Computed example of a mutant assay.
Amino acid sequence: MLSVWPLIALCTLLMVIDAAGPLSFQRPAIAEGQWYRLLTGHFLHSNWPHLGMNMAGALVLWSLHGHFFSVRKYWLYLLLLSFGVGLCLYGFSPNISLYVGLSGSLHGLIAYGAMKDIRSGEKTGYLIIVGVIAKVAYEQIVGASSDVEALIDSRVAIEAHLFGLLCGLGLALLEWRGIKKPEA
């Protein structure tokens, strides 16, 4: 069973190290060739409540879908989703010049896990995927919660949630296309 403590330790360490902002997603720095920021910004947080919320989300996701992952696969997919969300933010959200947080990647893991539930015959997958799609659609129409923005002392990047959802669905579909059913 994968422990989320390494993820908590990594995010905490990066938040402390990044006090001056050398690793966050910053559009001008990425444009100058610091492409690593497309990935590293996801593991930084605006404050301790932001970190806590993302770690609580990671724990809930692990309790729901941890059985689908080996340690290697979990980290690989988390990194792939983070990089995918970073690329989408850079390519499709020019209004975002600074981004930190894991929530976009967590939305990707939610979508991926729900699709794995559906694929394995677990009915809860349908509820989870409808729920996350409804949540993201609501955010796109109404906007983020002002209470959450006050708590994390930052704008909630709802675009990252949308891109995470799409990347998670894409990852699940790519995986499905690569799995061949045995011939009868």
Rank of each mutant, 00 (worst) to 15 (best):
V132E: 01
F92V: 03
G131H: 08
V132I: 15
A144Y: 11
D147H: 12
K135A: 14
G86Q: 02
S103D: 14
Y90N: 02
L87A: 13
L102E: 01
K116S: 06
L127A: 15
R155S: 07
I110G: 00
R119E: 14
K135N: 10
V142Q: 04
A114Q: 04
L127G: 13
K123F: 08
Y138R: 13
S103M: 04
V130D: 08
I152K: 02
G101Q: 07
L106P: 03
Y90S: 01
A150L: 07
L151Q: 15
Y99D: 12
G131M: 05
I141G: 02
Q140C: 07
K116R: 15
L102V: 06
A144N: 08
A137N: 03
S120D: 11
Q140T: 05
A157W: 01
V130K: 06
L109V: 13
R155Q: 06
S154E: 10
A134W: 07
G121D: 01
H107M: 08
I110L: 04
S93T: 10
H107R: 05
E122T: 10
Q140K: 13
N95K: 11
K123D: 11
Y90E: 05
K135M: 14
L151C: 15
Y112E: 02
L127I: 14
T124V: 15
T124D: 09
V136H: 01
